[in-house]
Design a protein around this nucleic acid. Structure first.
Length: 201
DNA sequence: CGTTTTTGACCGGCGC
DNA sequence: GCGCCGGTCAAAAACG
């Protein structure tokens, strides 16, 4: 979000270190959100947490007491994306401005995945509703914005492809779900029932 | 007919 | 203060 454009502009880290090895990550396997360090809300410093969980889950070991990959690298490659505004004027033609007070500017912790997949949106067990799409600078691929459709859940995620390697999809999560995913519950219900049955003895 | 996607406009922050 | 830029809104279309 920190729109520092000029010298080094790159909000999303286009340079998360890639996997050392192809991880056996299946897009259909439900993922639990890993524990996050609650942001300490530094004044204006965006607390950018960028961990390659796929790498971690696939056997990559962290140094104890060590530093995760808190990468906030910014690379600059000047290239202007020329995409003309489409002529067709369609939805969204609003000219009123009395918008209700927006959410405050709190920057929840974010973390990104690199996924090698042919499909943009990977099935993580939650239901997402797309609410935006923007062209990314120095990339021909757009970035898509999704939001969790659960009633009171405000988790968001962004999906974009690397311009260089089209097979790499970067999924950036923002926030923590306050509810279990229906797919997870569906998978867990038989186990819970069996657990209850066994607990009677 | 309800839900999701599409897509230009709008908003707020930041650099100059 | 202006303009760029990334993120969000919301009307209409698309989808089932």
């Amino acid at each position: 979000m920190e729109g520092n454009h000029g010298a080094a502009q790159q909000t999303l880290p286009a340079e998360i270190p890639p996997f050392p090895s192809p991880s056996p990550f299946q897009p259909s396997s439900p993922m639990l959100l890993p524990p996050l360090t609650q942001d300490q809300s530094n004044d204006q410093a965006t607390n950018y947490l960028d961990i390659d969980w796929v790498y971690l889950l696939s056997g990559g070991a962290l140094n104890p007491g060590g530093d995760q990959q808190t990468v906030a690298s910014a690379s600059s490659a000047a290239a202007n994306v020329v995409y003309g505004g489409s002529g067709g004027n369609r939805g969204g033609g609003k000219s009123k401005m009395g918008r209700v007070s927006r959410a405050k500017k709190t920057v929840p912790p974010r973390f990104a995945f690199h996924t090698k997949s042919a499909d943009d949106v990977l099935d993580d067990g939650y239901r997402w509703r797309k609410y935006g799409q923007k062209a990314v600078k120095n990339s021909i691929h757009p970035r898509s914005y999704y939001r969790c459709t659960y009633h009171t859940c405000n988790v968001k995620k962004q999906i974009q492809r690397l311009s260089r390697d089209t097979s790499i999809v970067v999924t950036t999560y923002e926030g923590i779900h306050n509810h279990p995913s229906e797919k997870l519950m569906e998978a867990l219900t038989p186990l819970l029932k069996q657990l209850q049955f066994l607990a009677r003895f």
